[in-house]
């Protein structure tokens, strides 16, 4: 695996995403749901909301990095968590 140039931070990043996917798969099997319509007026399932959260978080992190610089990046994660809560509540 040396050719993939792994680092611990990137490994943890992918492990978190894999864990999230696993958790949401188990949730979908244990607690089946019907899609709902939120503020975006589109039907979403939990998986869709997770995707919207992850994609939006990537853009939030990039915007934070571009505007605020790298020193305060953990705060971008705090914004992402608030964004995730909002997506799961209202989308």
């Amino acid at each position: 695996m040396a050719w993939m140039a792994w680092t611990w931070p990137t490994a943890i990043f992918f492990m978190v995403i894999a864990a999230l996917l696993a958790i949401f798969t188990i949730l979908a099997i244990k607690f089946p749901e019907t899609p709902r319509r939120g503020v975006l007026r589109i039907e979403t399932t939990r998986g869709d909301r997770l995707f919207i959260t992850l994609l939006g978080s990537a853009f939030i992190n990039l915007a934070w990095l571009g505007i605020m610089g790298p020193g305060t990046q953990p705060w971008a994660l705090a914004v992402c968590l608030a964004y995730a809560a909002a997506v799961f509540r209202w989308v």
Binding site: M4, T7, F14
Partner: peptide
Amino acid sequence: IPLMTVVNYSVQ
């Protein structure tokens, strides 16, 4: 796997 490798490259 290639995408993961690109992510690894992007921080090094």
